[in-house]
Computed example of a mutant assay.
Amino acid sequence: MLAIGGNLPSEIGDPIVTLKRAVLMLNDVKSRVLQVSRFFKTPCFPAGAGPDFVNAALVVESALDAEEMLARLHEIEAEFGRTRETRWAGRTLDIDLIGGGDVVLPDAATYAHWRDLPLEEQMKAAPSQLILPHPRLQDRAFVLVPLNDVAPDWIHPVSGQSVAEMLNNLPESDRKAVVPL
């Protein structure tokens, strides 16, 4: 499962155009997009850091392993002008590997460390390796609302909760801030 978003225009157009083109690029010899959620307008995080985002979620089938898929996602982001200079800065395209089946990478302890990292540390530190499932997916309406469109029954391999359950655990104000386009 992937989360895709952007809040800055790329060379080909606004974030909606960019996201649609990126989804097409994910269909290649080794990967196939099975489902795409609706597109949603979501508030920029942290608040005031830039224009609102457009976000969506995808279910993808791939012959690539998680590391290879992450490398492919970074290649696609770069093709649309994505740079990684400032953590949580505005971006033309962001594609995150959210989870896959019951995979936990690299291990449960490392996953728990990143999941439990205080917000002020999250803003400064980024893991040097792939962490799956995404350690803060359960906290992010901009991921869970679109993901609920395409995979409401996916079970988080650590918490044991479905996407629908994780979404229902978020404050109503967070859920309502994610608006279909």
Rank of each mutant, 00 (worst) to 15 (best):
V29N: 11
V29M: 12
V29K: 14
K30T: 13
S31I: 11
L34G: 00
L34Y: 02
V36W: 01
S37V: 10
S37Q: 09
S37L: 10
R38I: 05
R38Y: 10
R38G: 14
F40D: 00
K41E: 12
C44A: 15
C44T: 13
F45T: 02
F45H: 08
F45L: 10
G48F: 02
A49S: 15
G50S: 08
D52K: 07
D52Q: 11
D52H: 12
F53C: 02
V54D: 04
N55D: 10
N55Q: 08
N55L: 10
A56K: 00
A56H: 00
A57Y: 10
V59W: 03
V59M: 09
V60W: 03
V60A: 01
V60G: 00
E61I: 01
A63V: 12
A63S: 14
D65F: 05
A66L: 09
E67C: 06
E67Y: 11
E68I: 02
A71W: 09
E75R: 13
E75N: 09
A78D: 11
A78Q: 14
E79F: 10
F80N: 01
T86S: 03
R87Y: 01
W88A: 03
G90D: 15
R91C: 04
R91H: 07
T92C: 06
L93P: 00
D96C: 09
D96I: 09
G99E: 01
G99A: 15
G101P: 10
D102W: 07
V104M: 08
D107V: 06
D107G: 05
A108V: 14
A108T: 13
A109F: 00
T110A: 12
A112T: 14
R115H: 15
R115E: 11
D116I: 01
D116L: 02
P118W: 09
P118S: 04
P118E: 09
L119D: 13
L119K: 11
E120H: 15
E120A: 14
E121I: 04
M123Q: 06
M123Y: 01
K124M: 14
A125D: 13
A126M: 15
P127G: 13
Q129G: 12
P133D: 05
R136D: 11
L137H: 10
Q138P: 00
Q138C: 06
Q138S: 13
D139G: 00
R140K: 03
A141T: 06
V143M: 13
L147S: 02
D149G: 08
D149Q: 09
A151C: 10
D153V: 07
W154I: 04
I155C: 04
H156I: 07
S159W: 09
G160L: 02
G160C: 01
